[in-house]
Amino acid sequence: MSRVALLLVLLLLGGCRGEAPPDDLPVESRVSVAPTPPIVGPNRLVITLTDPSGSPQTAHEVRVEGTMTHAGMVPVHANARDEGEGRWVVPDFEFTMGGDWILILRITLPGGEEAERRHDLRVVSSSSPDPGGP
């Protein structure tokens, strides 16, 4: 009986933790990286924020987290610099390994709400050309 109770508790606890539901805040993001394709080492990220109509979206803060799609690598964090007109820049975002990365943008809007947007990108070793793919 106690084992069943323990199992139920664990199931309940496990169920408490989940993927955050997508927000419906009116902000869209686009990321461009230089060089293209992105390489292992420092890269320049340019983040463009717009509202659904395509007009520049102002924000209070944009934080960037880069994480690989597999575990075991330390994520990379940076704060983007506001250059106005919805344009935010990270001048030297350091990708630490080649492969598939996910950029997570945490955008604090002027009202304090936080939007999260994700972008996939493939980083290549600086010595090798990209054989293709996203």
Binding site: L10, G14, G15, T67, T69, H70, A71, M73
Partner: peptide, 22 residues
Amino acid sequence: ILDGLFGPQLAPRNLAGTLPWV
């Protein structure tokens, strides 16, 4: 198993992505 089924599906943030494979 619980975190793999119900937790965040980003492997580096999940016990199922980290514990078995690293």
